[in-house]
Design a binder for these strands. Structure first.
Lengths: 174, 174
DNA sequence: TTGACAGGTTCCACATTGGAACCTTAATAT
DNA sequence: ATATTAAGGTTCCAATGTGGAACCTGTCAA
């Protein structure tokens, strides 16, 4: 399978990675959260070539993760800003930061600390269940077929991997 | 800058992505969480070529995200299993699932639902502050220079982007 | 002895990337 | 009026990465 086809998988991870799962894209989004907005700022911050950057920005605008906002009418200059879809990637970036701080750090410690505006403390975000508010660790979630797979099974799609999808319960994903 | 050099950035996101930020790696890790463990199982599940898969598995073992475990002594066959470092990627995958369910889904809905063992309910994990337990949204975290940057500044490293690093407060990352 | 199976490696054509040079438009400096 | 600079690109080429197919190796089972 070629990379362009991975978003045909009935899997939210595969579909998400089809949008931001390549070499530079998530770093561009990181910079967007740092208030970097202009072509030349992205280029200076990332050290990416103009050509690559141009590509990636066009794709992120197409995917509606970024939007172009006019900031100089006479010269028709645009900034790139996060849309709601882009802003919603914040938890993804913050969980990556947490992991990187713990596992991909030199002995000097975390490069950056984050103060939570709400409580004023240095925070280490964690992942909790929205029902019982307990922290979620690996292997504590049991996957079951959701409507996204069920409806396709009913309509007779997904023949190829039918077993794989039906067999989810108590199996894969945990 | 070439991709191999990105982990020289003093940034946990860049360093983390240097490990799992390429095309197939995070999907391999996804499958490892689904209890996929053997070379041929990964290959069947992903549709990746053997050569690529071999590459990636070697690198993930080098990075200690996966470890090889002997399961057939006579034929010296090994399985690939998540280490603690790998298991700790669970929140990263789950936040990606959440985002994908919301923004990269067709009209059939989420492919998979997750039941939280602890409470028995379908869960939508969220990212909360470990101090005040409030949910964290974009722009609610204020970055400040951490020891990982501070110590390098004291030792006179980081000359190139000194301003960028010093200027964090109230600026970048939110 | 033949074949199958797991887990690879080798080879090649093709796609993606990084780096440098060039282009376009408007603004500014001389 | 002319030259220079800046932003935001595009074009080209060499080097690197990738997908597909074929091949290899060491069991095992019939």
């Amino acid at each position: 399978m070629r990379w362009e086809e991975i978003d045909t998988q009935v899997c939210s991870i595969a579909r998400a990675l089809a949008i931001f799962g390549d070499r530079w894209t998530l770093l561009i989004i990181r910079d967007a959260f740092r208030k970097i907005r202009r072509f030349s700022e992205f280029q200076a911050s990332l050290g990416i070539t103009k050509h690559r950057l141009s590509d990636r920005l066009v794709r992120l605008v197409e995917e509606e993760v970024l939007e172009k906002v006019l900031y100089d009418e006479r010269r028709s200059r645009y900034e790139y800003r996060l849309t709601q879809k882009g802003l919603d990637l914040y938890p993804v970036l913050m969980t990556i930061v947490q992991w990187g701080d713990q596992w991909a750090c030199d002995k000097d410690g975390a490069p950056i600390n984050f103060i939570h505006e709400n409580c004023g403390q240095v925070t280490h975000p964690k992942c909790v269940c929205n029902v019982c508010n307990e922290e979620i660790h690996a292997k504590e979630l049991i996957p079951e077929v959701g409507s996204g797979i069920e409806k396709k099974l009913e309509r007779g799609e997904l023949k190829a991997n039918k077993d794989l999808y039906k067999n989810l319960k108590g199996g894969p994903y945990n």
